[in-house]
Design a protein around this nucleic acid. Structure first.
Lengths: 387, 387
DNA sequence: TACTTCACTGCAAACCTTTGCAGGGATCAC
DNA sequence: GTGATCCCTGCAAAGGTTTGCAGTGAAGTA
């Protein structure tokens, strides 16, 4: 380890006043040079700019925000940055924001609802709005927080708030039908976090699809939405005697496959596995993962658009002329539902020709109605969920 | 898609003044209630707190920062958030920061030096310091930016700035020696991004180790540090006739294995592959990846510590008493080098008993000195790199 | 009683910037 | 020559908060 001393430290901060003094004009002229150049004489402008450059002046964005009410920042709160599901969403959001001259600040909550709330507070006055992705806190808390800072919720339906949803219900249905079509009659659903909206939607849709397909559905969980979570239930899956599994997400599916492999259970020969998300990794595992692709990029872009739209409509901090009547700003809130796609790869295969090989298997469901009729449409009709 | 209208929008912002009015005290008392509670009468305090609670008051952190000069935020700039190398670093940094009552804002640059620079400017006045991880811009630009906001650099050596480095030189050496020990005589190094400090260090150390081991080292690259980057060079690797490869990082190693697999080349039977980073994924691929484990968590924690330490020493925005003499603040800068570890798993195996099977193989190096002597120590002696 | 001490609170400046308003000077038309 | 118009610039308030200083009243001490 080297230790050195230097006096190249952050220089004394140079403010608009320093530039004004150096260029012999009033600070308001300097201000205008940067925020409304057309209002200042070209000659003055170049002089001011030269001085600014010379002194290394940069407008203080915090001070500017204090008076304009706009920071040109967007906060992005996500449950777990280690989940490869999120990076494409983040990148899409950042790219979209950049086009609109906004910056995105990302924060990770470690799936902790308390951290989520605290982060919203922390970000509140430093950003123009927050994108809340796969939140773990309650709907009522989200509504309450939305009075503090404009919010757009991703992967959760909150009435009265703009939401970006992915139709995992349809995806789960497609997955179950795919498995039924392959001849599976006993299927497990690996649940994710309890407070996840996606989790509830999947469960509902999978249950419906299984019922109308006349097959048995075992729900295992809740589980941590990670490889470890999937790994941990491998033994339970094996003993349950199911021949196919729909996992809450790809990470769990991958962990499960790993766990089954360790137990000597082959995928897809003995057990078929379907994930959700279509993370980049799902193309790299062996077997390549059959999964429900979710439009993460579109979700990020859409969320930014919705936030900025609502943001532009109602300039921040606008006190009513009548001296602070507590009348909220009127605004429109839309909820968009993005489509999902089943991507069939190598982790699903034909169901057992005979009964399940494992002795502990529960008997198949008693009343098979129709072989594989499309289930009741469940999209977009959900009420508020996730207490 | 549902569209609705609501007037539950963000309420009129409630300020310290509103609380003061409601509780019948001066704003300074309200301020003290929050930032110096011991200075205000307990009765007054509870009254003020009640009013604040009632009105839903939250101190405006931006305004506070304007006057105190401290935001209690840390910026974290990352080359590519999709690289699983970073999440553990991010999480460690966040956890460490939280203990010190700081928040971390993460931003991704897409490996784009321009975006990096812009982000530093954007963050400058909204955070107390920035952690620059695996930067892609020039050292001189970094030095220049460090005058705008306190900086700690991770994975890059910049003289005069606090740096957190991982000893990838030692790691690369250990990897090469491991391969030599297995009997490999013709090894390739898959290079990463040209402007990466890690890339240069690895190359230097690998070259030295190969030379002193008397084996041939082929450098392939630069390449994108992603699965795709690894996938893309698979054919080149095959044709080069090497029997072992050290990749710039795990992602490339995994992509390479995938690519070799597609070409019918078996790992590790025909070609051994070593990665760097030990991302979680490297335990899940098949074969499990042999890799140089880098202490990402420790790096994140250390970086936060170094930033906060330097930050505390020199309170921001302190103008000298002599009315703005441009004398920089004196501060200490340390450079720490963290150790790496070779983790041997299943992607490396014995070298060829005979000559390499492929016809195109280059002849082995002419002068084998010592079988596997430890190379010259290269740690911590590097000058500034990466123009 | 007079004086000190103490706890608490109010006053006002400060942080850095933006912006509505008004003033100054030049240009132009009549 | 007068008045209107226009471009540019300065003035000062505002945004929400912190903080050094001073002032108040009460308690304590002699």
């Amino acid at each position: 380890m080297t230790v050195a001393t230097s006096d190249e430290g952050p220089a004394v901060p140079v403010t608009i006043r320093d530039v004004a003094r150096a260029s012999g004009v009033h600070i308001s002229t300097v201000s205008r040079t940067f925020s409304a150049p057309h209002l200042v004489n070209p000659e003055t402008r170049v002089r001011v700019l030269a001085c600014a450059e010379d002194l290394g002046y940069r407008p203080n964005r915090a001070a500017r925000a204090l008076i304009t009410g706009r920071t040109h920042n967007i906060g992005l709160i996500i449950a777990d940055i280690a989940n490869p599901f999120f990076p494409p969403l983040i990148k899409a959001a950042e790219s979209q924001a950049r086009h609109r001259d906004y910056h995105v600040f990302v924060a990770d909550t470690n799936e902790d609802p308390t951290a989520e709330e605290e982060l919203v507070h922390a970000l509140a006055k430093q950003v123009d709005g927050v994108l809340l992705c796969s939140p773990r806190m309650s709907n009522s808390l989200i509504e309450q927080l939305s009075r503090e800072v404009p919010l757009v919720v991703v992967n959760r339906q909150v009435t009265g708030l703009p939401c970006v949803l992915m139709d995992v219900g349809q995806g789960a249905r497609a997955a179950i039908e795919h498995l039924i079509g392959l001849g599976h009659r006993s299927i497990a659903l690996l649940g994710g976090p309890r407070s996840s909206w996606t989790n509830r939607e999947m469960r509902r849709a999978a249950t419906t699809a299984a019922r109308s397909g006349g097959v048995e559905l075992t729900v295992l969980g809740p589980n941590a939405p990670t490889e470890t979570g999937g790994l941990a239930v491998a033994d339970q899956v094996r003993r349950s005697g199911v021949t196919a599994v729909l996992a809450y997400n790809d990470l769990m599916a991958i962990g499960l496959i790993e766990g089954l492999d360790a137990l000597g259970v082959r995928v897809p020969q003995e057990v078929s596995v379907v994930g959700v998300d279509d993370i980049a990794l799902s193309r790299l595992t062996r077997p390549k993962l059959t999964t429900v692709a979710t439009p993460t990029g579109a979700a990020g872009r859409t969320a930014v658009d919705m936030l900025l739209q609502q943001d532009i409509e109602s300039p921040r901090g606008a006190r009513g002329p009548g001296a602070g009547t507590a009348l909220g700003v009127r605004r429109t809130t839309a909820q968009v539902m993005l489509q999902t796609d089943l991507v069939i790869r190598d982790s699903t295969g034909p169901g057992p020709h005979a009964r399940p090989a494992r002795p502990l298997a529960a008997p198949p469901g008693p009343d098979p109605h129709c072989p594989a009729g499309p289930g009741v449409p469940t999209a977009a009709t959900g009420d508020a969920v996730a207490s």
